[in-house]
Structure formats: structure tokens, C-alpha cells
């Protein structure tokens, strides 16, 4: 097949599938949360409530798209687009199966980190442009939180980079043929999981939204599809982080018997469910606790992990 056509098809699939899965995640999350809280969740619209997603989408598209008169209009409009763009850009480097990636860059991992660090702007600018106290507080919290968790997110991944010897994600997957990196890099995995939670603002770390204190934090003033874009962006982030955990620590597409893409999807789905379980189980920490954990526990641990990994790699080198 023509390589350009092939990469266009992959590009289309990479944009199309995560967007739809993200919408489906709304259903999955509500059903799973209900399961763990001894409820049923949405089960009326269609079989198992599957059409609930469709109903929600129709509803959100027909909501009034309201820009508050006191808001900073251009920034207010750009902010939700930024998160969609940055998260979707990150999908270009994810290796779904051997050869099935839009751009197999030699700095793939750094590209992912760069895009996730740009994602902060969406939240911060949304909070600022809304010109509301709650939104501003949410934006401030988001910038502080994501900045500090990004630091050791990058550092926690450097262990895998050391072991694989490359920033290219397909190389990292290939390097896990004999042993998943979760075994030598267990600490790195835990750190990345926590940092990923903080980056996607999922429940134990959803302080920028914090319904009980800040109404809805940075998106208090948003409505209609702009709000929907934040929502979809969050779910896209969850899928992305799950996919990255799969790629970096759990051997990506590798596994016996089944085709590679199935293994990838199964592993990713497992981590998505883990994310939802964390949301179901854990309460939100206080903001100063969050920051001091980040800087006083996570960062030293990440540095230690990097140091030990580096020493071991150096010692084991022939």
C-alpha cells in the first residue's frame, strides 16, 4: 500500500477511535462506578444503557453555548480547543501495534511529555478567561498541581528510557520482549501512575475541579459543547495515560496467542478500569498535602529510581 495512504488511514483511525471510545468511557465509567457502589447506573436507554452516550451527546450539542459577558472572549474560546488538540497530538506517537503509529519519532516519549505539559494551558487559560473567582482558583490550582507533577512524571519515565536505550516508543516496546518493564521499574510505574492521575485531573487529584469546594473549578462558566470538549479531553487523557502505561511498563502490544492490537486494547482497558476504581475508592487530598507529596516524596523517589536504574545499567553493561 502507498505509505501516505496508509498513514492517512492510521491517522483517521487514531483520531476517530479514541474520540468515540472517550464518549463510550462516559458510559463505562458510570456503569463501573455504579457497580462498585452497589447501584446499576444508566441502564434504561438501549441495551445496558449503551445509548445513554448518544442521548448525552445530543443533549450537550443542543445546550446553549454561552459566553459570559465578563469573560475574555478569544481566550475563553481557545481554551477548550487547546486540550483537545494537545491530547490528540499525543496520540500520534502511541504505537498501537507493530507499525501502526502515525509518527514513530525518535523522540516519541519527549513529544508525549511536551504535549501533556502544553495541556496545562487549557485549564489555566480557561480559569483565567472565565473571570470568575471559582474558575480562577481552579486555574491556579491546576497550574501549580500539573507543573509539580509533570516534573517527576518525566523523571519517572527516564528509568524505562535507560533500560530501553531509546526515546522511540516502538523501541521501548520491543525492548520488553523478555520482561515487562514493570518488574525492574516498579517504582517508576507507581510514580507514573500517580503523575498520570494528576495530569488528567482524575479523582483523587481533581482539585482544579473540586465540585464540593469550587463549584466546578476551571469550567464553572462553560456550557454546551465547550464544556463537552473539556469532558472529552479528560477522557482522552485517561485513555492516553492508560495507553502510555501499557506501552512503557506492560509490554505494549506484546503477548501470546492473540493479535497485537487485541493485547494492546485489553491492557489499556484494564488501566482505564483501574483509573475508575481509584475514582470510586479514594477521597480528595488537601491542596497543601498534594503539593508537599509531590515535591517531598514523589520527586526524591523519582530521582532515587533514576539513580539506582542508572547505576545498575552502568554496572550491567558489558
Amino acid at each position: 500500500m502507498n505509505p501516505i495512504v496508509k498513514s492517512l488511514i492510521i491517522l483517521f483511525l487514531v483520531i476517530f477511535i479514541p474520540l468515540n471510545v472517550a464518549a463510550g468511557l462516559i458510559w463505562l465509567e458510570r456503569r463501573l462506578l455504579a457497580l462498585w457502589q452497589d447501584r446499576y447506573g444508566p441502564n434504561r436507554v438501549g441495551p445496558f444503557g449503551l445509548l445513554q452516550v448518544l442521548a448525552d451527546m445530543i443533549k450537550i450539542f443542543f445546550k446553549e453555548d454561552w459566553i459570559p459577558p465578563f469573560a475574555d472572549k478569544p481566550v475563553f474560546v481557545i481554551a477548550p480547543a487547546v486540550i483537545m488538540v494537545t491530547v490528540l497530538m499525543s496520540y500520534t506517537v502511541v504505537p498501537w501495534a507493530p507499525g501502526a503509529t502515525v509518527a514513530d519519532m525518535n523522540i516519541g516519549l519527549l513529544f508525549f511529555l511536551a504535549m501533556s505539559s502544553l495541556g496545562v494551558y487549557s485549564i489555566v487559560l480557561a480559569g483565567w478567561a472565565s473571570a470568575s473567582k471559582y474558575s480562577l482558583l481552579g486555574g491556579l490550582r491546576a497550574s501549580a498541581q500539573m507543573l509539580s507533577y509533570e516534573v517527576f512524571m518525566g523523571l519517572s519515565l527516564m528509568g524505562t528510557v535507560l533500560l530501553a536505550g531509546s526515546f522511540r516508543l516502538s523501541d521501548i516496546v520491543a525492548a520488553q520482549r523478555h520482561m515487562w518493564f514493570v518488574i525492574p521499574q516498579f517504582l517508576g510505574f507507581i510514580l507514573f501512575l500517580i503523575a498520570g492521575l494528576a495530569e488528567t485531573r482524575r479523582l483523587p487529584f481533581d482539585l482544579p475541579e473540586a465540585e464540593s469546594e469550587l463549584v466546578a473549578g476551571f469550567h464553572s462558566e462553560y456550557s454546551g459543547m465547550k464544556f463537552g470538549m473539556f469532558f472529552v479531553g479528560e477522557y482522552l487523557g485517561v485513555i492516553l495515560i492508560s495507553a502510555m502505561i501499557t506501552v512503557l511498563f506492560f509490554g505494549g502490544w506484546q503477548g501470546p496467542w492473540l493479535p497485537p492490537i487485541v493485547w494492546f486494547v485489553v491492557k489499556t482497558l484494564f488501566f482505564i478500569c483501574l483509573f475508575i476504581l481509584l475514582r470510586a475508592a479514594l477521597p480528595r487530598p488537601r491542596f497543601d498535602q498534594l503539593m508537599s507529596w509531590g515535591w517531598k516524596i514523589m520527586l526524591p523517589l523519582a530521582l532515587l529510581n533514576l539513580l539506582v536504574t542508572g547505576a545498575v545499567v552502568l554496572a550491567a553493561r558489558p
Partner: peptide, 21 residues
């Protein structure tokens, strides 16, 4: 305790649902 919480919540998947249809 966090791990225990996670496990306990996970076990709720196998309990009777309280919702009245």
C-alpha cells in the same frame, strides 16, 4: 490502607445492588 480501600471497593462488584428498579 489505600490498597486495602481499593480492594474493598473492588469486592463491592460482587455484592447485591441496592437499587430498586
Amino acid at each position: 490502607s489505600i490498597l486495602r480501600t481499593l480492594w474493598n471497593i473492588f469486592l463491592h462488584a460482587f455484592q447485591r445492588r441496592e437499587t430498586v428498579q
